[in-house]
Simulated scan of single mutants.
Amino acid sequence: MTEEIPLTGGRVTTGVVRVGQTVHRPVGPRSPFVHRVLNVLGGHNAPQYLGDDQIGREVLTYIPGAVPADLGFFSLGQCVQAARLIRQVRDRLSEFPDCGPGQTVCHNDLSPCNFVFQRGQPVAIIDWDAAAVGDPLDDLAYALWLWLDLGNPDNDLVSCRTRLQAMLTAYGVPRTQWPSFSQWIPQQMARVAVSAIETPGRTRAVRAWVARCSAWWQSHGADLLR
């Protein structure tokens, strides 16, 4: 029997293991929907759903590469590639049967910690547990927040502005729509504060972090979008 190698670092699902060139994960109430989403993507920039194993875990293709353990600084090139990747996936999923006009299937956790990197560049999105039909710009706003670590007091504002605007451009957001992100980004911060996982100590820490990010964005966000 092929050895099971625990995969750590996930923020939603525990008990994930690698078996050869596959990943075995516990299923949850949203797994059937997620499997439909992954089937539409067909292994492009995301794992492919292969079925279930003998003990009922879902089996996905393993995507080799590195997954960041935490937020941090990502280069202009990495940020641009992430925005292009997010747009490619959005376009593939916009024809998903459950989507209405202007909707797509949102990942809802487009942190760099849910991207696989190869040769220093993001190439695939993993951990689709929170996926749901929604507004694609909500997903982008969330990604901007975490890829740029908006709220980190050590951020260089010039670099942050350059990378933020480059991501908007790479995604294809018209410049006339950029000011809308002054509200979209804090809305995503508020969503995280409300949905913080109820575990001892975590909820308070997450909400304190979100509060710091929100205050930072209120001070600098409008300037970054000009």
Rank of each mutant, 00 (worst) to 15 (best):
G51F: 03
D52H: 10
Q54K: 10
I55N: 02
I55G: 05
G56R: 05
G56F: 04
R57G: 03
V59D: 01
Y62E: 02
G65Y: 01
V67Q: 00
P68A: 04
A69V: 08
A69F: 02
D70F: 08
D70S: 14
L71G: 08
G72D: 04
F73Q: 13
F73N: 15
F74C: 07
F74L: 06
S75G: 15
S75P: 15
G77V: 12
Q78A: 09
Q78P: 13
Q78R: 09
C79R: 11
C79Y: 08
V80M: 02
V80N: 02
A82C: 11
R84G: 08
V89L: 01
V89G: 00
R90G: 03
R92G: 01
R92S: 05
R92K: 08
L93M: 08
L93A: 07
L93W: 07
S94M: 05
E95C: 14
E95Y: 12
P97M: 02
C99N: 12
G100R: 07
G102W: 09
Q103F: 08
T104C: 04
V105D: 02
C106S: 10
H107L: 12
N108V: 10
D109H: 15
L110P: 10
L110A: 14
L110G: 11
N114C: 05
V116C: 04
F117Q: 05
Q118R: 15
R119W: 11
G120K: 02
G120M: 05
P122I: 13
V123G: 14
A124W: 01
I126Y: 02
I126F: 01
D129V: 15
A130L: 13
A131F: 04
A132T: 12
A132D: 10
V133T: 13
V133H: 05
G134T: 09
P136G: 00
P136H: 00
D138W: 08
D138Q: 14
D138K: 14
D139R: 10
L140G: 00
L140D: 00
A141Q: 07
Y142W: 12
W145H: 09
W145G: 06
L146V: 10
L146P: 07
L146A: 15
L150D: 06
N152M: 10
